[in-house]
Design a protein around this nucleic acid. Sequence first.
RNA 1: GGAGAGUUGCCGGAGUGGUCGAACGGGGCAGUCUCGAAAACUGUUGUACUUUCGAGUACCGGGGGUUCGAAUCCCUCACUCUCCGCCA
Length: 424
Amino acid sequence: MLTLKYIQENAELIIERLKVKNFDASAIVQQINEENNKRKETQLQVDALKAEMNKLSKEIGMLFKDKKIDEANAAKSKTAELKDEIKALDTSFAEIDSKLNALLVQIPNVPHELVPFGKTEDDNVEIKSGGSMPTLYEGNQPHWELIQKYDIIDFELGTKLTGAGFPVYKGKGAKLQRALISFFLDEAENAGYNEIMPPILVNEDSGFGTGQLPDKEGMMYHATVDNLYLVPTAEVPVTNIYRDVILNEDQLPVKNMAYTPCFRREAGSWGAHVRGLNRLHQFDKVEIVQIAHPDKSYEILDEMVAHVESIINKLKLPYRIVRLCGGDTSFTSAMTYDFEVYSAAQERWLEVSSVSNFETYQANRLKCRYKGKDMKKPELAHTLNGSALALPRILAALLENNQTPDGIRIPEVLVPYCRFDTIK
RNA sequence: GGAGAGUUGCCGGAGUGGUCGAACGGGGCAGUCUCGAAAACUGUUGUACUUUCGAGUACCGGGGGUUCGAAUCCCUCACUCUCCGCCA
């Protein structure tokens, strides 16, 4: 969420910029100002009363010490009224405070000035493309047919064991998953990221810290007996490592990566565009996460984009990078780049990575701060994350784009990991 | 799952009803000394909100309660440790 201070100092700018996200913030900003004024007023009163109470209590203590019991008891009787007043004001302060908080979490992150206006993905701006389009042979097939043909991924078996959207990877399909995960982790390691293997169940506080809770509760699987949530992305546990942490300025940037399975309930529709591997309830992903100095975060965003691009290049997939328009940029993000790879048999672009700078928006919820030598107070850090990469759609594109009448060719970089070069 | 003991600042650790945001030790930072360093000595060292910029308020695992007054007493939840049980 945005900080109160920032909202107060930049109300006009926020309202103007959020139009890019098609969000009218004017009413909420006004309500926030009103609540905040009430809050200040109440705090002023309650603090004064408490100060008086503290003073009285000390005096009573002294009187008892001096054995002036009667005087002490007289003073005691005076406190009752004060106590009631304090209690009442404390209650209304808490109410105002939670109202204010509820308002604050409703304002999306302010988009960066480069984020274009727009409502849907059609308004995203392509900033780069690369790789060469494959020309497939006559009779090529989409991946959902290929996986059956070579018996490497079994959706029906997954349905038997769990339900729709939980595929079973078999034989070379399973090995290919393992190979991709190892390859992605090694690439991230070479780029200076520290490997983390986090829990894949998280508590409520963590869900709140990265913004999945309270609003997007429906996206996560909930283990209700223990009140834990299955992670929708490694971003949640890995970013929450820094919840309530004050880092030293010289520790920045913190570069972590993690492989986890990801679980998404995805209540949305199921149709032609979400066939096969295009949308799953459980999938694998390697995530890169950075905690950055505010002055460096956009430089770092570019670095992260370059990292993802290098991986896709090594896999020799045709891709394009788009800067998301306001309408497509998520609630919490200030700027997001999406990577799409071309799926030749489906003849469409598949989103395989999303790299975002959240600036201080997540950090404010997390209370993730840094402090430098010459700083009086800690400041909020910037958080960034990106998929590097999500497996299923990469796999779909690899299978489709590399199919030949004699089988599916494995990209060279993966062969040492797979220890086979063709799926026949 | 059963029984018991705990949770205090950057770390260790004292504090069982009042002057405690908290002894003492370590660490960090600044200074003295030194060509420099070490040692020694001196000082300093949490976060948040409010502020008429003097200060005020809150925080000793979380929440609630008792009391004029709670780190300290009570309730509750979470976590940690020890023993028993179970177990990859």
